[in-house]
Design a protein around this nucleic acid. Structure first.
Lengths: 198, 198, 198, 198
DNA sequence: TATGAATGAGCCTTCATTCAT
DNA sequence: TATGAATGAAGGCTCATTCAT
């Protein structure tokens, strides 16, 4: 009986859940959450829609599961950051590590970036906002002047955006990431120094 | 007769098209494009769905019309920018003017920002990309080093993002805009100066 | 003021009704009745849908008016036929005249032929059926054997079908009509003679 | 369990697809393709519209599937005819067999006959035209004179039309079919003999 | 560990028609 | 002799979800 199962089916055994997550993320990132139907995901995997429901309770839960798996490092980073003194060095290190995290799950973060309107209405929306808030609290000094605060936020955001907006620029992926990181680090450094004009 | 028509209906006459655009933008920005149905728009206006189709050929066309009306200033800005020498002053002026344009149509740009995945598949997607490209060409020096280029792009992007990401920060709208503008101007200035590490 | 009216508008004066009929028949014949919308007709004429309603009460009435105008000759033919003795000569003459009538309003008859399902549900459906019945009564001898009756009906039908089904055959329109007429005449003649096998 | 399901639902299991085809053909033939809505079909079957879409991708595909199932015999006939010498006997046999095929799927062919305008725009339109062309090529001698060719085409067409146009005539279905077949056979025979006047 | 069959809600769109001007 | 604006009904289709097997 097992012998009649061909290689493809055999490989599939036991990791369908993972495969669903992979395909889903791929499609969500490419086409957006709403434009990606469960039918489409199922077809890509050569299973039925009902199979998806064996592994996940809803469409949203597929996304949530991917999100949870891939953003754990951010939680860890925040955890770590909270226990450090809020020195410039800490902030720079946060920026550095965050840059690495982002490039470790490009697809997900691209998805989050491009589907904000959708994500806002989903469970992960709130969660993500909280995490960003968590990062901010470490990186932004609430007593600094407005310009300094903006600079800090801009540092975080430059990292985020960098991944997608630089696609048209020349240069290999890694050196672009380095450049982005440098700009972000500069921003955070300037913000720490003083911020405004003086 | 005519007198039997109540105020509400009368006011409506002749500006339904405009009202559709307003409500649509409002809802698109709030809930996203896909999540906003024509039924919903129609209900907000107290007309039937079919009335929308008298004024616009498709759902997409409603968006396009809003987009065209509201982004004309960007076209003008690009036009202007192209005729200037690419000096630092020009770039700073571009940044300044772009900041003003953005804050003149917050809803639309928030929509564009938060619905990138959707927008990418629509007609306006390509258009918008082209315009951004147009701005970049003026502001980014292709011969500068990578870091300088990133800084320039980051300037543009900081403007974009600034409008939404700063909502949780203290301060009134206008002073926040000023702060964002300052950071962006700094970025463009540094980029022009040299860019990198020296 | 009349002087500002250009040639096109001027020509239009007073014959809009006729132009509606022409365009409508053209489109009905080409695309079918249901697939042709009033919007389409109006656009072809460069007027609004509402203008059509000034001239005709309903979509169906446009068709009815065309039908009535163009099938009057059939009524006349039936009238004439009823007053003749049901001799072979009469039948042959009916066939001959009917052939002429058909080729005088090809579009309408093509329409009738190709939209039977639709036409059946319209007012003209019943009317047309009656007229065909009228022709039959003259041409088909109810006392003849079944085969003879079929031959007679086939004669009529061959005329009908001939117009459309022969489009792929070689030869000019007129000589094809002659050929069809000859076959139909033969059929009616054989039917009259005896019909069956003997 | 299982016992709680009433007879009706139980019967339904596993043959819904077939039932859709049956009901659809019935309604298409009766009211025409466009006038028959999916809602109507669904209601006749006591299922939802969405159920139809589980079994067929589009409305058109329902028709196509019926068409394909029911016109396979024509393909076989053409196949057979092509391998025979184009003698009179072959032609007569084609006519005979075609007559049988037609009376084996009356509803479909009535539908095709009465919805030509619609069918022309559908996928089956082209297909059907090709098949008719296939039959013609066997039955019509391209070197014969025009009248002979018309006679041949008329033979085919008389068969087609015979099924519907004779409904008002007396006589049972089968003897009418025989009569029609005889007339068609005569036509094909005369066409083969010479055709014209001599 | 999946599938086959179906549902209910909703979507975008089109249509014939109306009516005040 | 027309138009501008709108309506109500319906149509085809897609989607996330369910459930018995």
């Amino acid at each position: 009986m097992g012998g009649t199962m061909d290689r493809t089916k055999q490989q599939r055994r036991g990791n369908t859940r993972q495969r669903i997550q992979d395909v889903a993320l791929e499609l969500f990132a490419e086409q957006g959450y709403e434009k990606t139907s469960l039918r489409e995901i199922a077809e890509h995997l050569d299973v039925t829609k009902a199979a998806l429901y064996y592994h996940f309770k809803t469409k949203e839960e597929i996304l949530v599961s991917v999100y949870d798996d891939l953003t754990q490092p951010i939680l860890d980073l925040i955890e770590w950051g909270r226990q450090q003194p809020h020195t410039l060095e800490t902030k720079q290190e946060i920026i550095r590590r965050y840059s690495e995290i982002l490039s470790g799950a490009t697809k997900l973060f691209r998805f989050m970036q491009e589907n904000q309107a959708t994500v806002r209405e989903l469970r992960i929306g709130e969660t993500f906002k909280e995490r960003m808030q968590g990062l901010r609290e470490i990186v932004v000094d609430p007593d600094a002047d407005l310009v300094a605060q903006v600079r800090s936020v801009s540092a975080l955001f430059t990292l985020h955006a960098g991944m997608f907006l630089l696609q048209d620029l020349d240069g290999d992926q890694e050196s672009k990431r380095k450049a982005v990181l440098e700009v972000a680090t500069d921003l955070i450094t300037q913000a720490h120094g003083g911020g405004g004009d003086e």
